[in-house]
Simulated assay, not measured.
Amino acid sequence: MRRMMFVVPLLLAGCSAASSSAPASAPSPSSASAATASASAAASPPPADLTLVFAGDVHFMDRTAKLLKDPATAFGPVAAQLSAADLTIVNLETAITSRGAEEPKTYHFRTTPVAIDALKAAGIDAVSIANNHTLDYGRTGLLDTLDALRSARYPAFGAGANTDEAYRPWLTEVRGVKIAVLGFSQVGELSSSWAPGPDKPGIAMAFDTQRAVAAVTEARRRADLVIVFNHWGDEGNSCPNAAQKTFAAKLSTAGADLIIGAHAHTLQGSGQLGRTFVAYGLGNFLWYGPSKSTETGLLRLTVRDRAVTKREFLPAVVSDTGRPTLLTGAAATRLSQRYAGLSTCAGLT
């Protein structure tokens, strides 16, 4: 991500000396107000156009763990698209730990801090850790994950050492735009035991709707642009379920400008929910093995003054190496058309 500071010079019109010794007449109140408004407008820079890129689930297990032998190239050629944006965010679906005991669940993902090097090298600016794998190795694993991210000075959101930290947004500024990013999990597995407490590490849960909505409301007060990255949906279902739609509507009302999602292991539709842009599911992105679908892609949005002015879907598939590979030609057209059609069952315009 390129963070840039623009200095806008204030241009003052020169005034010639009056030829008469008589004092100039005072401006009328209406002309004075117009002049003040004009000067204020001239001093305020226009809203910046931001290019934001989002992708789905990432972890480094089995075949993708091998990619960490060279973290600089772990994501392959798609890194050029990731790094070109002003802000790029994915879901990191793994604990960063070598300790802890496996939680009572089927799948367990963990990796080493080298994964952070790979994320940085690919141009990914921040990650959501509000998902159903961050605590695969218990609270010990979560605390190790938080420590690794903190040590690497790498932004993450959606989990924390206590409730306040878990629901706290990541705040950043890009091209003069203040951005708040939050993450919530709506996956039921172990959700009650993984929820944070006043002195208990955990994941920000969508099931505590009141707390989640309050967090978005507060973020709206502090930022120009509010982004929410959710982990939700039914695995293998290309259409969002009722819980997703209900939660999205509440977040929109609270002031979320963009709502991005993953978890279903397949693409789900995107479009407008009122003034909020919603992308329900971006599928797997860098993935360890077989899945419900290999379809994936990059969602590239141009945003100005809280509104999406341009949206692009760059279709891709998860390759045999686990890396995402951008499609071209007829295959790209077919997947782009399928993705566009998914907005119908999503109920989005």
Rank of each mutant, 00 (worst) to 15 (best):
L67C: 00
L87N: 02
I129Q: 03
T64V: 07
I129R: 03
L87W: 14
L68C: 06
L119M: 11
S98I: 06
R110H: 10
F109L: 15
D125T: 07
V78K: 05
A101T: 13
R110W: 05
V90C: 15
A79V: 03
K69M: 05
N131H: 08
K105S: 07
E102W: 00
A130W: 01
I124L: 07
N91P: 05
D86H: 14
I89C: 01
L119C: 04
K69Q: 14
A122V: 01
A80I: 09
A80W: 10
T106H: 14
S83T: 13
P71F: 13
P104D: 15
E93Q: 08
I89N: 00
E102F: 01
Y107L: 11
G123N: 12
A65G: 11
V114Q: 11
A130M: 02
P113K: 11
N91F: 07
T134Q: 09
A115R: 03
F109G: 03
A80R: 14
D125A: 15
D86K: 10
T64Y: 11
A79W: 06
I116Y: 10
G123A: 13
F109Y: 15
V114M: 01
A74S: 13
P71N: 11
A79H: 07
A79P: 03
K69Y: 03
A65I: 10
S128G: 15
P77C: 11
G100L: 03
D86R: 08
A122I: 01
L87K: 04
A74L: 07
A118Y: 02
L82S: 09
T97I: 02
D70G: 00
H108W: 01
A121H: 11
N131S: 08
A130G: 11
P77S: 13
L87S: 05
P71S: 10
A72H: 12
T134W: 00
K105C: 09
V90T: 14
T88K: 07
E93L: 07
T94F: 01
H133R: 09
Y107E: 04
I89E: 00
L82R: 04
A121I: 10
I124R: 02
G123T: 11
T97Q: 02
V127I: 12
V114W: 05
A101C: 05
E103D: 06
I116E: 06
G76F: 13
T64E: 07
S83K: 14
T112M: 02
E93Y: 08
H133C: 07
V90F: 12
V127G: 04
L92W: 03
R99C: 06
T111I: 06
A80E: 15
I116W: 09
A122H: 03
K120C: 06
V78I: 15
K105P: 04
T64N: 09
I124T: 02
A80N: 15
T112R: 09
I129F: 07
N132F: 09
N91C: 13
E103L: 06
T112I: 01
A74Y: 05
G76K: 12
S128I: 08
T106E: 14
D70K: 12
H133L: 08
I124E: 02
N132Q: 09
L67A: 05
T73Y: 09
A85N: 08
N131F: 03
A122P: 01
A65C: 09
Q81H: 14
A118C: 08
I96C: 02
D117Q: 12
F109K: 04
D86L: 10
